[in-house]
């Protein structure tokens, strides 16, 4: 820390915290996909088909995620319905 730096704002963006958060998400995602849960794309297709039987939705309107938090797996299905 030199004289010049002393005058600069001490409150810098904490980019390490952003790095940690991004890593936690991507690593969890990649771990779940390598632990034999590669059925997600197929399940996504099936769910989409069921929904399409009743409502007209496009492939990109559906988002399926499998997350793990505190030893508990959460299946999150987001469907954006047409107006």
């Amino acid at each position: 820390m030199s004289l010049m730096q002393l005058f600069r704002s001490r409150k810098e963006d904490n980019s390490a915290a952003i790095a940690k958060e991004r890593l936690q998400i991507i690593v969890a995602h990649e771990r779940s996909s390598r632990s034999g849960r590669d059925f997600l794309p197929a399940m996504e297709r099936d769910i989409l088909e069921v929904i399409q039987k009743y409502i007209e939705v496009q492939q990109e309107c559906i988002d399926i995620k499998l997350d793990s938090q505190d030893g508990c797996s959460i299946l999150e299905v987001n469907v954006q319905l047409p107006n």
Binding site: D13, A16, A17, K20, L23
Partner: peptide
């Protein structure tokens, strides 16, 4: 690490 520019050891260990 102190300046918040680099992941610290605990972060890497935790991940």
């Amino acid at each position: 690490v102190t300046r918040g520019e680099m992941l610290n050891i605990q972060d890497v260990e935790e991940i």
